[in-house]
Simulated scan of single mutants.
Amino acid sequence: MPYEAPTHSVERSLRATTGAKVVAGIDEVGRGAWAGPVSVCAAVTGLRRPPEGLTDSKLLTPKRRVALVVELERWVTAHSLGHASPEEIDELGMTAALRLAAGRALDGLPVRPDWVILDGNHDYLGAPWNVRTVIKGDQSCVSVAAASVLAKVARDRLMAELGAQHEDFAFAANAGYPSPAHKTALAERGPTPYHRLSWSYLDAMPQWRHLKKVRAGTDGSPAPIEGQLGFDF
């Protein structure tokens, strides 16, 4: 499928208008999964020509993503991964969990970025970071596209490792998203220790509904549960 290759346009603009020397691209994966962490990668790429075929991870085949990661790990100036666990997602909600995972990724970089390019139109990161949001940044910005591929492959590998302990759930194939095999195993066996127990899928399973966790709002009332229907394989 044809696509327009990402460029350094936003990275160059931030350098020119703000004096930024280090710009990091950020992307996440796992927001809409039923099991596993939400994972964020922060990537600093400089302005060198990227590996051929770099784009949003969702536009690449699994085989191409894995091959591209080998090139990216040698090519990027620096990158770091941050995760928020299912328990943290249940306790904090998805927006705060994303902020936590992104902060961990940024803190893991060897140098603090002057500016961060965040995929999407919502700044879930906030102060003290300088953030530029870019809709479809994973397709248009080199650093965000690199972060997208690195995050996706890292999380897929993690879910495959978890899946070895729970083969019926087919985590190696579905990465914790609601595939038919996942739904069937969940209905028959109930949630694993890696499932998000605040997600609404439990409402449709009377036999496991008692396990659902409700995150309390600041006023003591149940808070809305976020992000449970995404399918960003």
Rank of each mutant, 00 (worst) to 15 (best):
Thr95Gly: 07
Pro86Asp: 11
Gly126His: 05
Glu87Lys: 12
Gly120Phe: 07
Leu60Ala: 10
Pro62Gly: 06
Leu72Cys: 09
Cys141Ile: 05
Leu109Met: 09
Ser140Met: 05
Ser143Thr: 02
Leu81Ile: 15
Ala101Val: 09
Gly126Leu: 00
Ala97His: 04
Arg104Cys: 03
Glu87Asp: 15
Tyr124Pro: 03
Gly108Cys: 12
Gly108Asn: 12
Gly108Met: 14
Val116Met: 02
Thr95Glu: 06
His83Phe: 14
Ser85Val: 03
Ala67Ser: 15
His122Lys: 14
Ser85Met: 05
Asp123Val: 07
His79Tyr: 15
Arg64Asp: 13
Glu88Ala: 15
Trp115Arg: 09
Ala67Trp: 08
Val111Trp: 09
Gly93Pro: 09
Trp75Gly: 09
Leu92Trp: 10
Ala102Asp: 06
Leu125Trp: 04
Leu109Trp: 02
Asp123Ala: 02
His122Ser: 10
Ser80Pro: 00
Gly82Asp: 10
Val116Trp: 05
Glu87Trp: 11
Pro62Ala: 07
Leu109Asn: 04
Ser85Asn: 04
Leu100Ser: 14
Asn130Lys: 12
Pro110Asp: 15
Asp119Pro: 00
Asp107Ile: 03
Ala102Pro: 05
Val111Met: 11
Arg64Tyr: 10
Ala145Thr: 07
Gly120Pro: 03
Ile89Gly: 08
Pro62Ile: 06
Met94Ala: 08
Leu118Pro: 08
Gly126Phe: 05
Pro110Cys: 14
Asp123Met: 02
Arg99Lys: 13
Cys141Gln: 07
Asp119Ile: 00
Asp138Arg: 00
Thr133Glu: 03
Arg104Gly: 09
Val142Leu: 03
Ala102Ile: 11
Leu59Tyr: 05
Arg132Trp: 03
Thr77Phe: 06
Arg132Leu: 08
Thr77His: 13
Lys58Trp: 08
Ile89Asn: 11
His122Phe: 15
Gly120Leu: 03
Gly93His: 00
Ala78Ser: 12
Ala145Val: 05
Gly82Leu: 00
Met94Ser: 02
Ala145His: 04
Trp115Val: 10
Ile117Pro: 04
Pro113Met: 09
Cys141Pro: 10
Leu106Ala: 01
Ser140Gly: 01
Trp129Phe: 14
Arg99Ile: 01
Ile89Arg: 10
Val134Leu: 04
Leu60Val: 03
Arg65Thr: 06
Glu87Val: 13
Arg65Leu: 04
Leu98Gly: 01
Pro113Trp: 09
Ala146Pro: 02
Val66Phe: 11
Glu71Arg: 15
Asp56Gln: 02
Gln139Ile: 04
Leu60Cys: 03
Ser143Val: 01
Ile117Arg: 11
Ala146Tyr: 00
Gly126Arg: 01
Pro62His: 08
Val76Ile: 07
Val142Tyr: 00
Trp75Asp: 09
Ala67Asp: 15
Trp129His: 15
Val76Asp: 08
Ala97Val: 09
Ile117Cys: 03
Val76Ala: 13
Arg112Thr: 11
Glu71Asp: 13
Leu59Ile: 02
Gly93Ser: 08
Thr61Ile: 11
Val76Arg: 01
Thr61Glu: 15
Trp75His: 14
Ala97Asn: 06
Arg99Gln: 12
Thr77Val: 15
Asn121Pro: 03
Arg104Asp: 11
Asp90Thr: 00
Ala101Cys: 08
Ala146Lys: 01
Pro128Met: 11
Trp75Lys: 03
Val111Tyr: 00
Asn130His: 14
Pro86Cys: 09
